[in-house]
Design a protein around this nucleic acid. Structure first.
Lengths: 240, 240
DNA sequence: CTTGCCGAGTGTACGCCGTACACCTAGGGT
DNA sequence: ACCCTAGGTGTACGGCGTACACTCGGCAAG
């Protein structure tokens, strides 16, 4: 069974193989040089079938439809998130867990958009949430507080940045691309001022954007610190 | 010019009319009864053209392509967000502003997904951000802190819930739809426990979901309180 | 060995999508 | 009278997801 030979690999095709190929295809299509859509757009049944050396309809013997394919891809990615080291307190355990989720998302840049497009939870996501909830509960947080805290963290639990526009790359999508740059500084002076504050230390980011990692941890710690305070205060759903 | 008559309105078609019709179409296609996709999926050039009694290609005389159409729709929705009452302090002003943004998003349920799909900022979004930044700065927050705070709030500024899966409606997307319900309670006991805590007070939500408004304000206040504390402490980018 | 089944892979076809391109046509400035 | 142009049209192309009928190979039952 462990025999997959030759150039045109004719391994018998299975749900696992389909899903793995789909993830690989999406990974490989990030910022494609030519001939292909990038990221999530690259995932089409036809393209995936071609990648597997198979006719498109063959895939439907292993996944019900494209939605289920995407669900499977999400589960595959979420399954990559490392489980936390058991020693630390709930706060640093959750922190570490979420940062680990973020690092997985950074390795699969298409995944954020795909996860956003899902309407219901997939098994791996539920298992992940279950584990995070366990960390909170074992840390002593009440079920009540934990419930609201899970909502408050929301997609950040999976490493989402929740940026408004995907960071970096600012200038020309809306108006004239060839014109000068009076737009930002002139029409939106406050935005310009704040954007200028981004140039504080050009250390981690590749190009002109903000320090994404710093921003992510800033927001995360803001939330975790707030949660800790509520916990110490014995917060419940009825409080001033 | 101000004469639009008759049943089959033959007003000359303009960018504004196209955009307005697109927003109306998307609004009307939320939870469609029959014959149509719901929400964001309902927005297709062909469908929109049909709605306007026109051939699809006619639209391209007023918008460059579908991306620009979506940008325009976003601007239209963001433009609906009420400007804040000028009296109050920065904290309640921002709070009120964000809740107002949320109420707009709730009136255009398709908008969240569309905004998420945009890659760059549109003019109305920039103007909105400019206004929020102004509130922070006028409230005395440093440019440095305001910068990070804007990142931390992220899409929540526009009223996004940032839920992991769009809330309510839990059960059957992943596994067998006809089976019993041992899945959740059995396989994910912590999730079940936390979900049970959702049944605290069934007041505001329509059906079985959580109290979305409460969750939203909980998270928002968690962030705003944290921001306030950092501000009072004189936080800067270098601090323990 | 024959027979029949059954599941994996195939081929064709449909309806939808965005949009490039050539065309027409009515209205207005010269 | 002229042509120019802006706005609307018709046709067509390539890509998408997927329904449906099929073929073909291996395998259990007879």
């Amino acid at each position: 069974m462990a025999e997959e030979r030759g150039s045109a690999d004719r391994a018998p095709l299975s749900r696992g193989r389909v899903l793995r190929a789909a993830v690989a295809l999406a990974d490989a299509s990030g910022a494609s040089g030519a001939s292909g859509a990038s990221g999530a757009d690259a995932i089409s049944m036809r393209r995936l079938a071609q990648e597997l050396g198979v006719v498109p309809m063959a895939l439907y013997k292993h996944v019900a439809n494209k939605e289920e394919l995407l669900d499977g891809m999400v589960d595959m990615v979420v399954g990559e998130i490392a489980r936390p080291a058991p020693g630390a307190g709930w706060k640093s355990a959750v922190r570490q867990q979420i940062l680990s989720a973020r690092s997985v998302l950074l390795q699969h840049r298409w995944a954020a958009r795909v996860i956003e497009s899902r309407t219901g939870p997939t098994p791996a996501v539920l298992a992940y949430l279950d584990s995070v909830i366990g960390t909170f509960r074992d840390g002593g947080l009440s079920a009540d507080l934990t419930h609201h805290v899970m909502h408050a963290l929301g997609s950040r639990l999976l490493g989402f940045s929740q940026e408004l526009f995907d960071t970096g790359r600012s200038t020309p999508p809306p108006s004239t691309p060839g014109g000068s740059a009076p737009d930002l500084a002139g029409a939106y002076p406050r935005v310009a001022e704040i954007a200028a504050a981004a140039a504080h230390d050009a250390d981690s980011a590749v190009g002109g954007g903000c320090d994404d990692r710093f921003e992510f941890e800033f927001a995360l710690d803001l939330l975790l610190d707030g949660i800790e305070r509520l916990h110490h205060r014995g917060w419940t759903s009825a409080s001033p």
